[in-house]
Design a protein around this nucleic acid. Structure first.
Lengths: 223, 223, 223, 223
DNA sequence: TATGAATGAGTCTTCATTCAT
DNA sequence: GATGAATGAAGACTCATTCAT
């Protein structure tokens, strides 16, 4: 929903604007985020923002949409890599992996969305977010339905509940890695591209274990 | 940390003050919450707030503490009801049940804490919160350790990951009920004591199913 | 101008109140001085102040009057000591000495008055002060007149100007001692009765030199 | 230290802003001076002040600097007029004259500085001022040193004390003129450019007499 | 198209003063 | 005579938004 003015901007300028905006909204929730700080950082006039976007909310909505779009693109690309349609669990594993990977690599985007989720529904910002909110869940729900129809997933439990659990599980990987390797995504924001304190293999292992837990449960077998 | 002045207040007045304050901080995160709105709603002088509390942060901290304390008291009471120390899963079920039950019955408290968890670390409000943050997870971790030592839980997966999953699962019940019964906890805030669109039995059923999923996994058995 | 209530107070209570009040007004000019801080320090109710005095201004005026009275009493006592009526210069020397001595020994009082002198005329506080303002000058003027009539002082220069100079000279001794001995009266306030970094003899010497300068001028003789 | 915004302002607007600000800070010491009053008088928005200056302190510091700079420029100009380097006393006379003249003609500036000197050290405003504080005295001290080395000034008295006396003497001219001609600098502030109740000659005469007193003392000669 | 000064509602906070108990 | 909760005006400051240039 940016104005034409913004889309006509030279790409370099447009991108540097977006970068500064993401920076601001990733670190501060909607109310606390400051348009003034964005323009100060960029050294442009305050009025410009309002020639690019209708208002703060409009800018915020665009950033959210952009983050979502870019993440989706990344997911599709990663998914495409895993050619044939494997089992539900294999696909789910890859989904989680791709998602967490993206978030860890793009803290500006993921923190923006985390902040977004927090926006109290009903507030200006919350309204913008709520639509995006159910997208993921709907997608997972469809995936679960498919898993059921192929007989991979148990069908004695409400499918919605399964989807919620699967969703919650995915979201917990990030905090798990933070806790396990003792770092903070938020704090990494300030630093210039500090590398993650673990390798790809470590992340894969965590995801595999999580999928294993989801598959077979946390109860010790044989009891 | 309220001042004497507040504690000396007539109970009715004190409670109505707290109610208004909870109302405000449940709907708005720290920065967005407005002291002015609280006093306007109560019809008292702005100065009064500062005779009760040192400042906005002080008030916020007190509300957090109060919500935590009251929830804890509720949990203890519910736990006490389930006499002997049963299996890990039974205890976990009861925990989730009590917790979700409290949150649904006291949206003011639970939303305050949800908002609190969101406070960006490093901000004024975030500092107040951070201490409370890891309490739940630490508690669950201890519970998981115990479950392992009694042989109920599998011990081939990182205990921290198990705790994270268990935690994430608990948190998902609320949204599950919202989605399933098509209502919104936040929106119920405004209304005077609207009853929940489901009975105790429904909630218990959901929790039981969730625990079942956690125990045995989502995979269809016999495959 | 305190109310009866204050005068009826037990002496100990009355004095401790005054001490706290002096403390506050010596360190802060009228506007910045805080009634709240006084009562907080004393641990009494805020309302009490308004049963002792009509308002802040009334309290302030009383403190000023008290400080002036007490200084005057001290001056009289010191003057009385120097029995017979000596020369103008001897008397002037003793006046300065007694005055500076009092100020250095009673920073609470003298700083109150210094603060008072600063109050912009026309303001609430300024009005209270202005009357006191001319007292000293009038006194000096009379002294100068006497010195002239006895033939001690030159009478070719406007008597008012002489009085002004004499007054200005007296006032400069304090800052001179501060600069020379590298200390600050204001800062001494906080410390518990720290002794002055110079002896009585040093102060007398300074005053003697000043009087000598006033008498014979700063020009090198014989030129 | 004003922001660009202020410097870019149309001169008329900038000057009227400064006038209002000087007006306010000349009549009220830092704490009592009110930004709100300034904008009310100017009929501009409160926010504007904060687009011109970082905060109240910043504005205050700028006013101080401006007053000091303008006075200094005036002094230099006046000093330049008195060609060759004459005797200490001639130079001192001219200094006093220029200084008092400036102060009487620019009460807004001089009262601001008088107010500034009063700021309690240690307070926000005091810190801003303290640096400027000793400048005059240091300057006079150097002057005195020079007078001694040329043999004009007596060297049997502490040079610092002489400087203090000289300083105190200069400062007393203003009040002398006020008392003698029965007017009040402060009260002239309100009125539009009211002329002084005495001529240049009168002022010169007063200064000359003062210098004479300083030179030869107040004692009647031949006794 | 870009600018950036102007706006003014809104923020938290302080404080002297009042008055019912 | 003492209390201390209530008051509300006033303070400095922030910020998204507008609009003339």
């Amino acid at each position: 929903m940016p104005k034409e003015t913004f889309l006509n901007l030279a790409e370099a300028k447009r991108e540097s604007f977006l970068e500064a905006a993401f920076h601001e909204f990733a670190r501060n929730e909607y109310r606390a985020a400051s348009v003034s700080r964005i323009v100060a950082k960029l050294g442009i006039a305050k009025g410009s923002v309002y020639q690019y976007f209708a208002d703060k909310k409009d800018l915020y909505a665009y950033l959210l949409e952009l983050a979502a779009t870019r993440k989706q693109a990344w997911m599709v690309k990663k998914q495409g890599a895993s050619s044939a349609t494997p089992s539900f669990f294999a696909r789910h594993r890859n989904l989680i992996l791709a998602s967490v990977d993206f978030d860890l690599r793009n803290p500006n985007y993921s923190l923006l969305m985390v902040n977004a989720m927090k926006e109290s529904p009903g507030t200006e910002a919350g309204l913008v977010v709520s639509s995006i909110g159910h997208l993921t869940l709907d997608f997972l729900r469809a995936l679960v339905q498919e898993g059921r129809s192929t007989g991979e997933l148990r069908d004695d439990i409400d499918e919605l509940l399964v989807a919620q659990l699967v969703n919650a599980a995915s979201l917990s990987v990030g905090s798990y890695m933070e806790a396990k390797y003792g770092f903070s995504i938020v704090e990494r924001l300030g630093k210039a591209e500090a590398s993650l304190p673990f390798g790809d293999k470590d992340l894969e292992k965590a995801v595999d274990e999580l999928v294993e837990l989801l598959q077979h449960g946390i109860r010790k077998p044989g009891r």
